[in-house]
Design a protein around this nucleic acid. Structure first.
Lengths: 172, 172
DNA sequence: GGGAGTTACTTAACATGTTAAGTGAATGCG
DNA sequence: CGCATTCACTTAACATGTTAAGTAACTCCC
């Protein structure tokens, strides 16, 4: 072995390919990520025009669907982690898009609800949002879309309660 | 209409529900997000034990599959935006997991490749990663998984070149 | 009723997503 | 050649994701 460092680069890559591994670009996480990005790319410009991020929009929609909610419940509904929600609620409150008041019975809890301005903003965004969704549905096909959502739900179900960290297997 | 501000909260939520809108929790973006999160939740602990984030792992895998790549190409492969990749490469280089050298022909380009240490790290992570993937495949079903990936790819395709911003429809 | 434990949330710290601006190197064209 | 434009990448700024720690309010049980 005379030459030691002629092309370490290629040698390393070759060695790396010996590590058994699926084709990277076809992994399930990547497929899901790309699909979601393809979808969100359609919505972001419209939301942006109205000064909303994807997550802020999720929160407003979630609040519109329920009278009022505790922060924890809202986090579950909008599928956000507590810390993210905490920050976003602070901003949305400062913009008067939501209202909050601490629950009487339990001072720890705070009830969050959408404000009149929040409703107005939703009403101004909803049309284009719906139009985009309709376009996506048309392009992909309504039936296939329903099938896809069904499969995604099943995937979620089949992984529920796996690797949640510390729950015993099934006994106990 | 005597009482005006007894429960403005409920009134706003009621008004909001007049805004025509699909059921929030069943929207495609949410379905995709939840499915992806259910999947990634399985992988994160293992990656974390090895000191890697999901994105760092994506980059290492992408580099293992190709001899060396320019940053832009790598961004496309690992599905990361330029700025994110730029930061991550800086960190991975500091940890000696990758190597980079500027191309001779074009000083703007830099070629990135995996290092010997990077290969070792990959080899140490791959087994558990593969085991997790196998578990997911088994739970969900290999056939259904293939179907799902097929549909996700079709979805991505059907949205390609829609709302990319400024390309003319089809002419010119 | 008082202190340990729990709960609901918030802060903090670090990493990435997202968009815009910056920088230096190549290209093209008059 | 000279200079505007484009290109490849990096920095910057702000928002969220992710985990850990902090804080105040509530529960429980001795």
């Amino acid at each position: 072995m005379a030459k030691k460092s002629t092309e370490p680069t290629s040698a390393n890559a070759a060695a790396a390919r010996q590590v058994p591994m699926r084709d990277f670009s076809r992994s399930l996480p990547m497929s899901l990520l790309r699909a979601r990005e393809a979808v969100m790319r359609q919505f972001r410009p419209s939301l942006r025009e109205h000064g909303l991020t994807e997550q802020q929009w999720r929160i407003l929609r979630a609040l519109a669907a329920i009278e009022a909610a505790e922060v924890t419940e809202l986090a579950r509904t909008a599928f956000l982690l507590g810390p993210s929600l905490s920050r976003i609620l602070r901003d949305l409150e400062a913009r008067n898009l939501i209202e909050r008041k601490t629950a009487k019975a339990d001072q720890r809890r705070s009830m969050v609800s959408i404000s009149k301005e929040g409703v107005k903003l939703m009403a101004s965004v909803a049309p284009s949002s719906e139009a985009i969704y309709a376009e996506i549905t048309q392009r992909f096909g309504a039936r296939k879309l329903a099938e896809l959502q069904e499969m995604l739900g099943e995937l979620e179900q089949s992984l529920a309660g796996l690797g949640a960290g510390d729950e015993a297997s099934a006994e106990e």
